Amino acid sequence: MDSQLAFRVFVSHDADNAVWFVVESDIPGLNVEAPTLDALVEAVTDLAPHLIDENIRDRVGSSREIAISISHLVTVKPLQAA
């Protein structure tokens, strides 16, 4: 069995509401938002072990480490036709 579990978390920023939030995640139940990206990363790293233990530990077994890849999704506008 691997000594590390790996999860992906995609986050985005809502400028209108000045909040960072989780868009999609491999971690069941992870739904969090924060005023800054740093605060969101801290919240994710604090919550993830608990959510993994509660929701999927029986399927993945115990592990020494949990790796979380946090990616920022950016939406861009298409080019306007000339």
Rank of each mutant, 00 (worst) to 15 (best):
R8M: 08
S63M: 08
L47R: 13
G61L: 10
A15S: 15
H13S: 02
L30F: 01
V11I: 15
S25G: 01
H50M: 12
L40P: 02
G61M: 12
P35A: 13
P78A: 07
L47D: 09
F21E: 09
H72S: 06
L47W: 08
R64Q: 14
D46I: 09
S3T: 12
S12L: 03
D26W: 07
R59G: 03
A81C: 02
I70T: 07
I70D: 02
I52N: 00
F21S: 09
I27S: 00
A48Q: 03
I27W: 00
N17G: 11
V74A: 09
A43T: 08
R8N: 15
G29L: 03
A6T: 15
L51D: 05
A67Y: 13
H13Q: 12
A48S: 11
P28G: 06
T45V: 10
Q80K: 00
A18Q: 14
V22D: 02
V9E: 00
A39N: 07
P49C: 03
Q80G: 00
S69L: 12
T75C: 04
F10E: 08
L51A: 07
I52E: 01
S63Y: 10
A6S: 15
D46R: 14
P49T: 02
R57Y: 09
D58S: 13
I56S: 03
Q4I: 15
P49M: 04
T36G: 05
I70H: 06
S63H: 15
L73S: 04
E42V: 09
S62W: 09
D16F: 06
I52L: 09
S69I: 08
